[in-house]
Simulated scan of single mutants.
Amino acid sequence: MRSVLLLLSLVLAATHATNRAYAQWDIEESHTTASLRGIHNVGGGVAWASGTDGTVLRTEDGGYLWQTCSIPPGAEKLDFRGVQAFDENTAIVVSSGPGDQSRLYKTTDGCQTWKLMLTNPDKDGFWDSYKLDQRGHAGILLGDPVADHFPLWQIDRDESAFQIKRFHKTPESRNGEAAFAASNSALFVEDVFFDVWIATGGVGGSRVIKRINHDFDSLGFDTFPSRLVPIGHHSESSGIFSLAFRSNPQSFAHDTAFITGVAVGGDYKKPDDATNIAAFTGNGGKTWTASTKQPHGYRSSVAYDVGQKLWITVGPNGTDISTDDGKNWRPLTPSSTDPADADKNWNALSLPFVVGPHGRIGRLRTIYQKSTAKNKP
């Protein structure tokens, strides 16, 4: 009997190992203690990060050295929840806060100097996310509901200047509905003229709103019917905090190019609650299905790793990955050479970079997925 039990325990251990993956994180020196929530990997070794106390960081060598940027004028106490960059010299940072504490600044000289582009004109407003489209040419700015509608701006860049246009017709909000500014990813923009998705939460439940038609004359914003998404618990602190879509290279129709998507969230006041955390869609966001195996706690950011062909999501209590487009998640644990908490205390992703509180910045190496045959002891 002892030999049988031993064999069974070994088999169970081997089976369990197939569900484990090991995170390979390089923790980088940021030279700041600010809480970081904005991160944008431009490519070619260039990335920008942002956070509290007007903090903006920049790297040109893949994170080996992070430069501390000058603080934009009057921004010493602002919380820069989002940053989107065009190259090593040009970037826009967005602060989140009530009324005029929500602002946009831009730099064109590698963050030596900054210019205030826009201050929130809504005294009851609060900006949540600013995202560039997949080409990196233009962006959309999203705020919490004002007068029962989500305010939106379109920001275009041409060769010489930036143009800012406010949408006249925007999605109507439900009672108690809002977006979250936790990781600058409550918004996904494929193309500012066509595909834009907005993630929400709150006491009315969570939903994803998608733009399906663009009125070039009035900057209209029409949506297909948005059903509730099974994330969160109908409370002010819960809902969808991040969503992302994976490009389908075999699709040639513009409206189906980004059909596979993942949304994550939960309740940020209950970070260890592992219920109603993630959902996925296979039809561009028209319908959403709860993940069968959920991430193991509240998650504030999600992204698709094209090279490794997997989804990764992060939060205060850990990191999870999915290799089946969000249907099932499994924990990512530190390798033996990484700090014991390398998987924890993260806010936002722009792969391969991840940022968190107290100036935490990490760079993801190749994930080692332990593979053990289930029929071998």
Rank of each mutant, 00 (worst) to 15 (best):
L5P: 13
L5A: 06
L6N: 10
L8T: 03
A17E: 03
T18L: 03
N19H: 13
Y22R: 09
Y22V: 10
Y22F: 14
E28D: 03
E28W: 06
S30M: 00
T32M: 01
T32V: 04
T33Q: 07
R37S: 00
G38T: 04
I39R: 09
G45D: 13
T59Y: 04
E76P: 13
F80Y: 14
G82S: 10
A85R: 14
A91S: 12
I92H: 08
V93G: 08
S95A: 05
S95K: 05
P98W: 00
S102T: 05
L104Y: 12
M117L: 12
L118N: 09
K123M: 04
F126P: 10
F126I: 01
W127E: 04
L132H: 08
G136R: 07
H137L: 14
A138R: 13
G139C: 01
I140Q: 06
I140N: 05
L152I: 11
D156I: 07
D156V: 04
S160V: 05
A161V: 07
F162G: 06
H168K: 04
A179P: 01
F188N: 14
V189S: 11
V189R: 06
D191H: 15
D191S: 13
I198F: 09
G201P: 02
G202N: 00
G205N: 11
G205A: 09
S206Y: 07
K210Y: 11
R211M: 08
R211H: 08
I212L: 05
N213C: 01
H214T: 13
S226G: 15
R227W: 03
P230W: 00
G232M: 02
S235Y: 09
F245M: 11
S247A: 07
S251H: 15
S251G: 07
F252Y: 15
D255F: 06
I259G: 01
A263V: 06
V264F: 13
V264I: 12
G265D: 10
D273K: 11
A274R: 08
I277K: 02
F280M: 10
G284F: 14
G285A: 09
G285K: 06
G285E: 10
K286T: 10
W288D: 08
T289M: 01
H296L: 05
S300I: 04
Q308K: 11
L310W: 15
W311Y: 15
W311N: 02
N317C: 02
N317P: 05
T319G: 08
S322N: 02
S322G: 03
T323Q: 13
T323A: 12
N328W: 10
W329C: 00
T333S: 12
S336Q: 11
T337Y: 07
A340R: 08
K344E: 12
S350C: 07
V355M: 07
P357S: 06
G359P: 00
R365V: 02
I367E: 14
T372Q: 09
